[in-house]
Design a protein around this nucleic acid. Sequence first.
DNA 1: GTCTGGCACTCGGCCCGTGTGAGTGCCAGG
DNA 2: CCTGGCACTCACACGGGCCGAGTGCCAGAC
Lengths: 338, 338
Amino acid sequence: MLSERRLEVLRAIVQDYVGTEEPVGSKALTERHQLGVSPATVRNDMAALEDEGFIAQPHTSAGRIPTDKGYRLFVDKLAGVKPLSSPERRAIQNFLDGAVDLDDVVGRTVRLLAQLTRQVAVVQYPSLTRSTVRHVELLALAPARLMLVLITDTGRVEQRLIDCQAPFGETSLADLRARLNSRVVGRRFADVPQLVQDLPESFEQDDRGTVSTVLSVLLETLVEETEERLMIGGTANLTRFGHDFPLTIRPVLEALEEHVVLLKLLGEAKDSGMTVRIGHENAHEGLTSTSVVAVGYGSGDEAVAKLGVVGPTRMDYPGTMGAVRAVARYVGQILAES
Amino acid sequence: MLSERRLEVLRAIVQDYVGTEEPVGSKALTERHQLGVSPATVRNDMAALEDEGFIAQPHTSAGRIPTDKGYRLFVDKLAGVKPLSSPERRAIQNFLDGAVDLDDVVGRTVRLLAQLTRQVAVVQYPSLTRSTVRHVELLALAPARLMLVLITDTGRVEQRLIDCQAPFGETSLADLRARLNSRVVGRRFADVPQLVQDLPESFEQDDRGTVSTVLSVLLETLVEETEERLMIGGTANLTRFGHDFPLTIRPVLEALEEHVVLLKLLGEAKDSGMTVRIGHENAHEGLTSTSVVAVGYGSGDEAVAKLGVVGPTRMDYPGTMGAVRAVARYVGQILAES
DNA sequence: GTCTGGCACTCGGCCCGTGTGAGTGCCAGG
DNA sequence: CCTGGCACTCACACGGGCCGAGTGCCAGAC
């Protein structure tokens, strides 16, 4: 096991490297931190840390930089979550309070998170299946053409067109709308399938086909790829990535455009508590030089979706984690109010 | 006025520079194009073109590159719009046909445009005010709390929460909903304000306040900042920008994040026909080294919104214009069908 | 056993001088 | 008006030498 001081050395290396973006040497370390020992001692500690794989040298005769394993240890054992200052908290609240609808909430959250962390922000829309039904609307656009509108308690709205084989009378439509709503309003979308499965049977023979069509579109909507949506922002922060970034930035931008990849990434994060994935811990190869800090948020106790940031492995973990956690809490509050 | 051959030389310079990304010299020009004259003659022509401000040298003893003015002449006089190949057309259609809702249409369009042009794509959502009302829904969430849902013929859905001073009965609500819809369905949103202005008067005294509140929220929604939304994609293509791009790419990414800036940019484009803005013709300073190709699209004859791409001034204008125009047409078709 | 100061060594980055070649402008002749 | 020739310019690539930060190792001190 590593001695107390060696851990302290690792912490100092991480902090300095995050600050300066340059490999840190033994002498500089002793000057900037009160370690109470000489550079030579630190050198020995560094050699040990390198043997264990926590730090590495880019080339001989350069300082050390932390490895993914080093950051992992730092995050798990050495770093806390830095709470935001109260002016920052107020700013968050003010900024989010002005939102007019869900798109606006998500858009503002993305901008806020990007600005606070100076990194790329990713915010997932509240998942349909984890939300609660506020209302289901059915509109007749034409005799045999309906529009289905789903509204969740988090303010999300989805609509789908439905082509029916046969015309559907206005009374039948009103009937279906009423019965559908009485069954599902206030229930979770995930439970909708079983709540409606026997619905067609209670209709007259003529209408059963259309009712089934409507229900199947409804159920499809809940499992579709677009069920999960997200918004990203702050990509301009990628330009602060590093010196050599033509090659670094490219795959990251590409990965960010693939929403499927990001959704998977967020999906891997724990539902509660914060998840930090560092460098090669991310499966996608475009993101092996980035870290992802993600957390769930929701209007109640349960997470309805996740949000987080993507940045270089060399990031200020305590500060980033603090910002991500704080933003998630406020977004949850806002959603609960709406 | 410039002679026929000098225009030909300019065209050759633009084409070569777009292809190679390197300043083009007189000798290389004569080798790659059948101009029928010697390098020395071309040199004289180039000197003349430089005097007129159409081309410039990055430094003495280097080839010439086109200036913004040179590209402008090229686009206006020398280049046509290159039509897409029929496989490309089929691919567009197939790709867009699978969309399930408006968000999906816009998302697919952005990806498609980015892929076809290999540049950054910008697609504006159909403007509310230019669309037609398909339906207005009012839901009671609580005795004194309503939700207003607007649905356009292009499939766009907006919702707003309304806090009423007094409870509003279910019959009154149904009444308002019916009267509202009978007045506005099928009309353009832009005309809604005058269509509903006398509506409160026809209600009983008790309900007038709430009706007015509902209407004022409705009218606000039409003028709000969020009325105009857009989606961007293909930012990874910025990495092909140039060699020196740390500094080039940064302001562009920043400008792209400011949706307000982009909306203004698109707003400046002509409603019909294609608009090309080159380099410094763009007011925003982050975009002075980019060109914007934009065009309106719509479900009928009239444009309901715009879409386009942002790329380096050194872009393949004929090809880009062809792709932008084709995509706009297909999106219009898709929207008309839905 | 642990820490410390000293010392030789390594190696990337910077500065600088040189050579090369692409490209130009100008001019005299066809 | 076009062309070939010629002198000139200048960015860029190459190579050598210097510098300094940082290292590993070792002998001695606490």
